[in-house]
């Protein structure tokens, strides 16, 4: 465990950590940002949210909400696929 700090200097591992960290924060940022934006916009554009979505009685705010749920599901599939691939996901230590 004490040599964990030294093994961290391995350039391959450094690259893996960088890639994974990029995925981690970009995916988190997108989904949290979209959710908060949707919530806050609901306060200011309540009438738009209540209006019918493309001629249906389905309200626009709900329709967008459904799309965000779908987005979270799709992003999760993509994230698991990407991070569980070799080179980005976990690997055996070189030593």
């Amino acid at each position: 465990m004490s040599n964990g700090a030294e093994r961290l200097n391995d350039p391959d591992l450094q690259q893996i950590i960088r890639r994974r960290s990029l995925l981690r924060w970009s995916f988190s940022g997108v989904i949290l940002g979209v959710y908060l934006l949707w919530g806050i916009c609901g306060v200011y554009f309540a009438d738009f949210y209540a209006a019918p979505f493309f001629g249906n009685t389905l309200p626009t705010g709900l329709a967008i909400g459904f799309m965000i749920i779908a987005l979270a599901m799709i992003m999760s599939i993509v994230y698991v696929r990407l991070t569980n691939k070799v080179g980005v996901g976990d690997r055996e230590p070189s030593a």
């Binding site: 981690r24 988190s28 989904i31 919530g39 909400g65 979270a72 599901m73 976990d90």
Partner: peptide, 23 residues
């Protein structure tokens, strides 16, 4: 429609748990 902020919050928080914490 107000309840959507709860249902959406549930789904989004689990996706966040996956992206930021799981591994």
């Amino acid at each position: 429609s107000d309840a959507m902020i709860f249902t959406l919050g549930v789904t989004v928080s689990w996706a966040f748990l996956l992206f930021a914490f799981a591994d």
